[in-house]
Design a binder for these strands. Structure first.
Lengths: 108, 108
DNA sequence: CCCACCTGTAAGTAAAATCTTACTGGTGGG
DNA sequence: CCCACCAGTAAGATTTTACTTACAGGTGGG
């Protein structure tokens, strides 16, 4: 799996957080779940979980789908995306050149 | 390569930064170099590079060795460690349970 | 109508990461 | 002695990230 430097960086940033690692681990073990249930399972507040899920989804590591349960409740189900990132010096050397500047002062 | 959740998190945190990715890429391409030379190559200040190198070394992604050049200067050479991290949902599910709390209020 | 679920988001604060500037100290050579 | 290299570190400003609290709105059912 070869991806752009920026995309790699976005995934790494999404993964570099204990809560988000736990979220992925839980989703990987339990399979699909909806937000409130996942918040209870992990033991963090819903707004906080929502924040982390958004970051994970933007990085393409999880996917969501809104579904209507039999009793009419709108549930937002999340599941892990089947990613596989190989992190080696060579892979990083290949991806790094395509990193955009992203500096806020100057890049002369 | 199986490692503890905390160790994985430390590596991911070290990798989740454009400068540090570039540092690893440069070291991987050029081979061993000393700090000042690397700073010139990448185009960042020495103190800043020193900061990033410290983080990379703490995570075990680079190694350093102080050497004396023929003309008597003390040069601190860095090189990439031969790491290989496989990032998949399953690998994360395996590592996550060994994450330490790291919460500052309560985890009841 | 109110309660129990579900969803999302905005505002404000607390904490951590990042970066610059400035300082300290070593060596060799003009 | 001063200049050109090399090294490291510490203080302070800025930016990002993380988190809490509070709000707004949907459904079904007692």
């Amino acid at each position: 799996m070869t991806c752009s430097g920026d995309q790699l960086l976005e995934m790494l940033s999404a993964l570099a957080n204990p809560h988000r690692l736990r979220i992925l681990a839980t989703l990987s073990s339990m399979g699909r779940t909806y937000v409130s249930q996942l918040a209870r399972e992990i033991g963090i507040s819903r707004p906080l979980l929502h924040l982390h899920l958004r970051k994970l989804e933007e990085a393409g590591l999880v996917t969501s789908r809104l579904e209507i349960s039999p009793d009419g409740k709108a549930l937002n189900f999340f599941e892990v995306a089947p990613f596989a990132i190989e992190l080696t010096p060579a892979a990083i050397a290949e991806a790094a050149p395509s990193l955009t500047a992203t500096s806020r002062h100057s890049d002369s």
